[in-house]
């Protein structure tokens, strides 16, 4: 495209096209900006705040902030690394995450990010919420709200990719939770095991039944390389 422009991420010049977000442009250049609520192909939400970068010294979420000519973006500063670590920590203590018993372990983006950030144990006090209801009603799908991080990927995927509206958030603040398009049970919605919404959950909150251990531990997405390395490889190959 003729009106391509450039900006910098941690001093590295990055090319971008009008309409691209900072995250997209950086990613195309082999720079990984950690993210959790964002996933390629979904409308960005800016909800988890893990992708917070400094744009000309001001905090912005890279997933939904438009790239523009000549801006100076800081990505891996001590301040931002600490900030992201804190956010990841918050998500861990907010829910009930037991990686060692979780069938998503190794494929879980929250867990993978924690490893990437060297988090062995959260620095915030565990909240151990006791009010998070699981939903096992659907024959093929189950919801484990203990593990939900309220990223909203399933909400957007169901709405925008599946053309349904199976999920949405109810209540607010710390009580906010994912709900289904029925009085209570997922089985009373039009959710289907082939829905894209099921593919996008970054954690083990929205799962297909009976497939949890199809891929053995040791051959899972993040078992050998940290999350983000698939993006960073693009840089080294060039």
């Amino acid at each position: 495209m003729s009106d391509t422009f450039t900006f910098t991420v941690d001093g590295v010049e990055v090319a971008a096209e009008p309409g691209q977000t900072i995250l997209e442009a950086a990613q195309n250049a082999g720079i990984y900006i950690p993210r959790l609520c964002h996933r390629d192909g979904l409308e960005p939400a800016g909800a988890c705040r893990v992708c917070t970068v400094m744009v000309d010294g001001r905090p912005q979420t890279a997933c939904n902030f438009p790239a523009s000519e000549g801006v100076v973006v800081d990505n891996e500063t001590d301040q931002l690394l600490e900030l992201r670590r804190d956010i990841i920590d918050m998500l861990f203590v907010e829910g009930n995450h037991w990686c060692m018993f979780c069938e998503k372990s190794g494929d879980c983006e929250l867990q993978a990010l924690a490893y990437r950030f060297g988090i062995a144990a959260p620095s915030f006090p565990f909240q151990f919420p006791a009010d998070r209801q699981a939903d096992l009603s659907h024959p093929d799908i189950w919801i484990d709200r203990d593990r939900c991080i309220l990223c909203g990927r399933c909400v957007r995927a169901s709405r925008d990719l599946d053309g349904k509206h199976v999920f949405d958030f109810v209540d607010r603040g710390p009580a906010k939770r994912i709900a289904v398009n029925a009085e209570a049970r997922l089985r009373d919605t039009d959710a289907d095991v082939t829905d894209e919404a099921l593919e996008v959950c970054p954690v083990g909150a929205l799962m297909k039944k009976g497939t949890g251990f199809d891929v053995p531990v040791g051959r899972r997405t993040y078992d050998w390389e940290p999350i983000g390395s698939e993006i960073e490889k693009r840089q080294t190959q060039e």
Binding site: C48, I87, M90, L91, Q127, D171, G173, K176
Partner: peptide, 16 residues
């Protein structure tokens, strides 16, 4: 009480 709960730092951080 009044946080909308959309983003992590406000939803979780204020409680902490």
């Amino acid at each position: 009480e009044e946080s909308c709960g959309y983003c992590t730092p406000c939803r979780v951080g204020n409680k902490l």
